[in-house]
Design a protein around this nucleic acid. Sequence first.
DNA 1: ACCTGAACACCGTTCAAGT
DNA 2: ACCTGAACACCGTTCAAGT
Lengths: 197, 197
Amino acid sequence: MPPIAEKPRRADARRNRERILAAGRELFAKRGTDAQMDEIATEAGVGIGTLYRNFPDKQALLTEMVRARFLEFVQFATAAEQIEDPLEAIEVLLGDSLAVIEGDVGFQVAMMGGQELESEGIAAEKDAFATAATRIIERAHAAGVVRGDLTFDDFTILLCGLTSTMYFKPGRADWRRHLELVLNGIRALPTPDRRHL
Amino acid sequence: MPPIAEKPRRADARRNRERILAAGRELFAKRGTDAQMDEIATEAGVGIGTLYRNFPDKQALLTEMVRARFLEFVQFATAAEQIEDPLEAIEVLLGDSLAVIEGDVGFQVAMMGGQELESEGIAAEKDAFATAATRIIERAHAAGVVRGDLTFDDFTILLCGLTSTMYFKPGRADWRRHLELVLNGIRALPTPDRRHL
DNA sequence: ACCTGAACACCGTTCAAGT
DNA sequence: ACCTGAACACCGTTCAAGT
C-alpha cells in the first residue's frame, strides 16, 4: 500500500510542495547539510514559512529526499537478483548503490548518521531494501561464496564506512578502492578448496 | 626537534592556556563538535576572548587535541613493531588505535574529515605515524600475509570507515565487527598454498 | 601584555499579520 | 486554507574597553 493517501489540497499548495521538494533535492545533493533553509525556500520560490509549513524542520525535508533514494536502492537490489553469479550480485548491488549516491552529498550524510533521521517515516522503504538485500545475501550463503556469518547488518555497517570515504575523501578513486578491500573481506574465508561439485 | 620553542609568557597567560587545553580535551572528547566555545571558556575559567586569543578558531583548538592523539598512535605503532607475528602486528595496531579513540568523539570527527583541520600544524605527527605504520605494512608484505597492493593510504581509508562506524553507530559491537571484516579484507588473496618454506 | 564580555553575524525556526 | 517575512534563538567570532 502507498504510504498515506494524498490529501486533496489547493492547487497552489500542492505545486509549492513540489517545488520545495525539487529545490531540496538539488541543494541537498549539491551541498549536503550546508544547504540553508532560506536558500531552499528562495530556490523554490516560496516564503520560508511555507517551507516550514510543509516540513517541520530541516531533517524532515532531508528525510523526504532519502526516501526516494531508498526506493532506488530497492530497484538495484531487484536488478541484482537477476545476476547469475551470486558473488557478483553482491558486488553489483554495493557498487551500483554507491555509484548513484556519489552525486548526492545530502544522502551520504543521511546514510552515515542513520539514527538522526525521522526514521519512522522511511521504515517501510528501509525494510523493502533490507528484504531484497537479504535474499541476495542468502543466495551467496547457499553458494558458499561469502563468510558464513555475513548478515544484512554487516551490509549496513560496511555501507556506512564506504559512504564516509565518499563523503570525507571525495573523488571516485578512494571509495572504489575501499569497496574492493571490503568485498575481499566478506568473501568466504580461505578453506580447503572442494571443487567436486 | 620539538615543534617550536615555547615563547616565555606571563605566568597567568600560560596557566590559562593549559586550562583551555584541559577544558577542550574534556568537552570535545565528550561531545565532539557539539561542544561550544562558550562552555569551553567557562569550564577553563577564562573569558571567551582569551580562548580566541590562544586559538584563532574552533578548528584550531580541535587540531591541538588531535595532535596529542597522533602522538599516541605513534606509540602504538612502535609497540606493535615488537610483535612477532606480522599480521597480528597490523591487527593490534588498528585495534589499539581505535580503542583509544572510542571515548574521544572529537577525535573521531577529526579522523574522518581529515582535510578540514589545520593540517599543516600536525603534519609532523601524521608523518611519524605514517612512517611507523608503513614499516609494519612492509614487514607484512615481506611475510606475504597481506594483499600485495596494500598501502598506507589504504590504512587511512579504512580508518576513516572504521571511525565512522564508531561515530555513527556508537557501541563497541559494530566497530569491532567492522574491523574483523576489514582485517579479513586486507589479507593475502587466497592463492595456492605454498608451505615449502 | 593580557583579559573581559558586550555586540555582531549567521542560520534554523516561529508566529503575527496578511490574502 | 494557505502564504509571507520580520523577529527570535543559538552559537561562532570580533573588538573596544579595561587592568
